[in-house]
Design a protein around this nucleic acid. Structure first.
Lengths: 108, 108
DNA sequence: TTTATATTTTGAAAATTTTCAAAATGTCGT
DNA sequence: ACGACATTTTGAAAATTTTCAAAATATAAA
């Protein structure tokens, strides 16, 4: 599947977002991640695999354990894609400027 | 379902992303949107409904037509959520700074 | 009110996702 | 090689999503 769908689909699940959230505080192995949830290990393993396919996490083996880390590059790409929705948006034909771009519009 | 999952799930489908992309250039009615895709009108109506539930678009009636518009507030919230993954991330224990934040890190 | 146009809702099939239990794989310590 | 532990893969059930055709709804025009 295309990279962008994989990323947004991965982010569309609360369990997977919580996994990412926990990884922000530091790397975790699969067991540590699994024990934070009610669902089984196999299910977590599946979620981890989706996150990996999306490029949102990387994993490395350390002895018996598989250690998962956030991989921020893909987050940035998703971020950029979202930002284009503001920066490149042609001015709509609505009455009264709809350019809700924050304090400074596109290009300052 | 929670707002955040709705938004990311909505963005996880290529058809829905293309709908959003087309709406960037200006408002469109349901028929105009549907005719840009191979799939049936009922299916597009369903996608539009999901986008609406996610808050990514709004619709208004104009005569017989239903006109769809981008609603950027929710984009910004998704954007913010993603940004927190950089700004609030505790420095990882990896060797050599992993703060891949672009030219200027968080807080300049 | 009848007819036409635009869109949504309904009901159902096909496809995908989530989950679990059990089996398989990989690594470590003996 | 063997047993214990950590994790993934497999096979299958349950739940959700995507799609379509047909019916229903809403507005407009005659």
């Amino acid at each position: 599947m295309e990279a962008r769908s994989l990323v947004f689909k991965a982010l569309g699940d609360p369990t997977r977002r919580e996994i990412l959230d926990r990884l922000r505080e530091g790397d975790l192995n699969a067991g540590e991640i699994a024990s934070a949830f009610e669902i089984g290990k196999a299910s977590i393993s599946h979620h981890l695999n989706l996150l990996k396919q999306a490029g949102l996490v990387k994993s490395r083996r350390q002895g018996q354990q598989q250690i998962y880390t956030l991989h921020t590059t893909v987050f940035q790409e998703a971020l950029q894609w979202l930002m284009v929705f503001f920066e490149n948006q042609t001015t709509p034909p609505n009455p009264k400027g709809s350019g809700k771009l924050g304090e400074n519009g596109p290009r300052g």
